[in-house]
Amino acid sequence: MGEVINVVVAFAVIVFVFRWITTSSDSPSQRSAADTLGFRPKNVTQDMIDTISNMFPDIPPDNIRYDLLRTGSVELSSNKILERGFLESPPPAYFTLYPRDANAEQAARPAQARSGATSTAIKVQKQTLIDRYNLKDRVAAAEPSTLGPEDLTTGKAAWEDSAEKREASLKERKAQMILAARQRMLAQQQKAS
């Protein structure tokens, strides 16, 4: 009976020593990253981050990297964004391993976002409906009418015979609605001042 206890104790000591040796041979950065994040991080390349940043420029790069560390797949991260509309932000422990760097964040942004494409998008957004539908001449020619803005939009449009006539009728109704909205806005501004 004493020999069995000695064998069990010797076996336990050998297992303990073997585990101690094998765990210390792991790289300390991997062990601390897994311990810090709570999961074993997958390999993430800058190309993976850039791919998702190109598709979803409004998602912060730290959120993208954190999700890629968890999933290891661009497709899974993209599907999460499409399903949820966002990626969860990383915990504070993430920033101990991957500190924020302003230069790296700008480098992570695609070159397209830094180029003139952004300025053209802003110019398009500043375009008014009057400019978009070429109503400048009608606005300049229109004097304050006695008709209220409600009178411009209340009539029903008749169904036209051809597609061209229907399209022209639709354009005219859009123009009337835009001009009526402009008149309402000007009336509100006059009341406010």
Score class of each variant (00 low, 15 high):
residue 32 S to R: 15
residue 174 K to N: 11
residue 165 K to N: 03
residue 78 S to A: 15
residue 145 S to K: 09
residue 103 N to W: 11
residue 78 S to E: 15
residue 7 V to R: 13
residue 162 S to Y: 01
residue 93 A to H: 05
residue 27 S to Q: 10
residue 115 S to I: 07
residue 111 A to E: 03
residue 176 Q to I: 00
residue 177 M to R: 15
residue 13 V to W: 00
residue 115 S to C: 05
residue 119 S to G: 02
residue 171 K to F: 02
residue 124 V to Q: 11
residue 71 T to D: 12
residue 90 P to E: 00
residue 139 V to T: 06
residue 18 F to T: 15
residue 66 Y to A: 01
residue 137 D to T: 08
residue 85 G to T: 03
residue 107 A to M: 15
residue 30 Q to V: 00
residue 63 N to E: 08
residue 19 R to L: 14
residue 128 T to E: 02
residue 51 T to H: 11
residue 26 D to M: 14
residue 172 E to M: 08
residue 97 L to Q: 13
residue 161 D to P: 06
residue 177 M to W: 00
residue 190 Q to G: 03
residue 5 I to S: 14
residue 100 R to I: 01
residue 126 K to E: 11
residue 148 G to H: 08
residue 22 T to R: 15
residue 47 D to R: 14
residue 181 A to G: 14
residue 50 D to M: 09
residue 184 R to E: 05
residue 14 I to F: 06
residue 162 S to W: 00
residue 159 W to C: 06
residue 9 V to H: 05
residue 94 Y to S: 04
residue 62 D to V: 06
residue 172 E to G: 05
residue 179 L to Q: 04
residue 53 S to F: 04
residue 15 V to C: 06
residue 14 I to E: 01
residue 176 Q to C: 10
residue 47 D to H: 08
residue 113 A to G: 07
residue 66 Y to L: 04
residue 73 S to Y: 03
residue 163 A to I: 02
residue 155 G to R: 15
residue 187 A to H: 10
residue 179 L to K: 12
residue 99 P to D: 10
residue 2 G to V: 01
residue 181 A to T: 12
residue 9 V to Q: 04
residue 34 A to L: 01
residue 165 K to C: 07
residue 4 V to P: 00
residue 111 A to R: 13
residue 108 A to Y: 03
residue 88 E to L: 06
residue 111 A to F: 11
residue 183 Q to C: 06
residue 38 G to F: 02
residue 148 G to L: 09
residue 4 V to R: 09
residue 52 I to H: 11
residue 75 E to L: 05
residue 16 F to I: 08
residue 120 T to R: 03
residue 130 I to G: 05
residue 50 D to A: 04
residue 30 Q to R: 13
